[in-house]
Computed example of a mutant assay.
Amino acid sequence: MLNWAELTKELGATYARAKRRFPNLRDQDMDSVWNNRERFEAYLAERHHLTVNEAHEEVEDFLFTERLNHELAHAALAK
Rank of each mutant, 00 (worst) to 15 (best):
M1F: 08
M1W: 05
L2Y: 04
L2I: 14
N3C: 01
N3G: 02
W4K: 03
A5L: 05
A5I: 03
T8S: 01
T8R: 02
K9R: 09
K9N: 13
E10H: 07
G12S: 14
G12T: 06
G12M: 05
A13Q: 14
A13I: 11
A16L: 10
R17T: 02
A18M: 14
A18L: 13
A18I: 05
A18F: 04
A18E: 12
K19V: 00
R21G: 07
R21A: 09
F22T: 09
P23R: 07
L25I: 11
M30Y: 00
D31T: 09
D31A: 11
V33W: 12
W34Q: 01
N35R: 13
N36I: 01
N36T: 05
E38R: 02
E38M: 01
F40M: 00
A42V: 13
A42R: 14
Y43T: 03
A45P: 14
E46D: 14
H48E: 11
H48N: 05
H49V: 08
T51E: 00
T51W: 00
T51F: 03
E54Q: 15
H56I: 02
E57D: 15
E58V: 04
V59K: 01
D61K: 15
F62I: 03
L63Y: 02
F64D: 11
T65Y: 05
E66G: 06
L68F: 00
L68K: 04
N69C: 06
N69K: 10
H70N: 04
E71H: 07
L72G: 10
L72K: 10
L72F: 10
A73G: 15
A78C: 06
K79Y: 03
